[in-house]
Design a binder for these strands. Sequence first.
DNA 1: CATCGCCGGTAGAGCGCTCTCCCAGATGGC
DNA 2: GCCATCTGGGAGAGCGCTCTACCGGCGATG
Lengths: 387, 387
Amino acid sequence: MGDDRSGAVPPADDLPHGGAATLEAPRPHGDVAARPVGSGETPERTGGAPTLEDVARVAGVSRATVSRVVNGKRRVAQDIQDVVRQAIATVGYVPNLAARSLVTRRTGAVVVVVSGAEEAAADGSSSVDFADPFFGRVVGGMLRALRPRDVDPILMLAETDADRNRVISALSNGNADGALLVSTHAEDPLPALLVEAGMPAVQFARPAHPLPMSYVDVANRDGARLAAAHLVERGRRRIVAISGPLDVPAARDRLSGFEDELARHGHAWVPSAAGNFTFASGVVAMDRLLDQEPAVDGVFASNDLMALGAIEALHARGRHVPHDVSVVGFDDSSLGAHSRPGLTSVRQPIEEMAAEMARILLDTLADPERRVTSVIFEPTLVVRGTS
Amino acid sequence: MGDDRSGAVPPADDLPHGGAATLEAPRPHGDVAARPVGSGETPERTGGAPTLEDVARVAGVSRATVSRVVNGKRRVAQDIQDVVRQAIATVGYVPNLAARSLVTRRTGAVVVVVSGAEEAAADGSSSVDFADPFFGRVVGGMLRALRPRDVDPILMLAETDADRNRVISALSNGNADGALLVSTHAEDPLPALLVEAGMPAVQFARPAHPLPMSYVDVANRDGARLAAAHLVERGRRRIVAISGPLDVPAARDRLSGFEDELARHGHAWVPSAAGNFTFASGVVAMDRLLDQEPAVDGVFASNDLMALGAIEALHARGRHVPHDVSVVGFDDSSLGAHSRPGLTSVRQPIEEMAAEMARILLDTLADPERRVTSVIFEPTLVVRGTS
DNA sequence: CATCGCCGGTAGAGCGCTCTCCCAGATGGC
DNA sequence: GCCATCTGGGAGAGCGCTCTACCGGCGATG
């Protein structure tokens, strides 16, 4: 505490303290002194930011014409365009989005909703684990697709009914145009609410219940097959699976895809235990499976966190990874990549998937008649040290 | 709002056709067929969401009165309040934020800016690693403080000059009221731009250059001292440090705090190498340090990712952790907590720090005269398997 | 009893923008 | 050559909200 250099902070006098600065020209920033003098007709606009009106006056055209230039709505003669653009630059005009969206009924914003269940709040924290790199990757991917289209994401967390109402009303108020939804629980009512309210939305992963909503997903079954084939190829014979909660479609698909592929190789029966995608649940599930099948030599976990938990449990019970047991995860998260030995994992291209979500939403916004669509990505297997 | 007893509402006869008006209330969505016929005065409001005007008509009061009830600005007689609230409920009114912020010049939103340098874009990806759990934790912490105050964060990434302009103009447009800044590079021009533009902003970690801007930080020197004392206590004698880029204040403080404490224990000289907070840079730095000091038995890395990289390098060179070498990281990220053996690390309470940032910004917004402040958090040492 | 707050309400002027009219002038078909 | 068409610009009406005036009524005051 003692070592913060508060002394390093210069006196606030360096700051344009409110009043004085306000007197100056309404430039957002820049050489305040270089205010365009001689703009004889400028009647002392001391207010805030320059408006369309100001630009129009300077350019000697009407407000409508400036608006047209700014939005490129109708053809405007080239020379007039130049004059207007020049004027925009000199007054430092930047459109007021509130005013614009008041009339267009559109904001250049979408909400990104991370939706979880509230019951989990019992353990003190929330049901959504933001420390999971998954969320960062999703948001990062969206950002990369949204930014070029000048759309900014508003982040919202939906755990309680109140939260969900907030989301819905943000959308219906025209606070945002559409929603990108990452729902972590099967019984999340939000997707249905969104559809019911007629709000454009795209979901990460197939909705748990059939719903006319666009989504992107990874071919979960194929990914699980990859894992199964890999374990078989490694010569593993006593193979078990740690699945996610089976009401989540992705978890179900991963498990059944895994089972299918193993069946193809003669494994009629695959012991499995369900976790809930957390590290701790991976530990527990692995423990249970070890009791059930002490000779286990291959494990597939439906995500990396549980795989790491499984490795932890295996170690505690004296098994060596990968010598005694091969472990394969799902997600290819940085957690697995940086653990030692590196975790073999089924990679889903989360960033690309998130970017695709954004693209779908943007397209839907541009053309509301668009049918709901889904895009499925192919997973790949990333082999590292645990197998 | 939910529990106002409508029983308290006086008979509608007190009001100019309160009852009749209710019939023709425009509902947000619902039975179009059941449109009220003979709506004598209602001028065909088939449009979108109900407005203040609609509420006023139903409640039999003026627009201004409804506004007052909604915003609680001036005292309004209790019975009238009840009637208005009732009307709001029946028409399903929800204020249009664009219209509101057009006049108030306030949006209930802040931008969260993750700011990085653009040079790093050479490696194909961006300079900001969203997979780093750090960002998720920061955003999660902010969310938790923002949500109760009904403020939503708009997420922006600032890597290029264009991005930075977007941030500044979002702020000056009244797209958002203030900024929460997470800057990952010392030479980031954004903090200065924000100050220059007079925008309320709070930064995570002390600005690299003296700037009148509020910030929260962890007592980096104290944290590093904790690590040093711990290594000494473990009986380590050949201790080295992997620092962050030394133009970043936090990196500098961590290194010098570490050196100070070791000096106190007789280590006049601590070999060190600088990384850039990535896993790979941790590997490289450790390799260099091993060349320099082959007998190393203690390592302090300025963040967990580099610590993990160091462990990787140590293993590659035949050292066993923690048997031969103790390793201590900084951050207490989930990466370290889930690795095996668990990474001993200096914990900074990221979530709380982020929440405090949000609080400071909100307070500044409420009272613009507020001085810039800083809040420094105390770190703690979390001992796990690597030491 | 006229006067003076003061309380509780209404009226209406914008906030900055878009967009639908409308109009002047240039083009073109018959 | 005349009317229809088109093209590029202006005028002005709002979008839904807040907020400053203003105003009627009413109890307290001199």
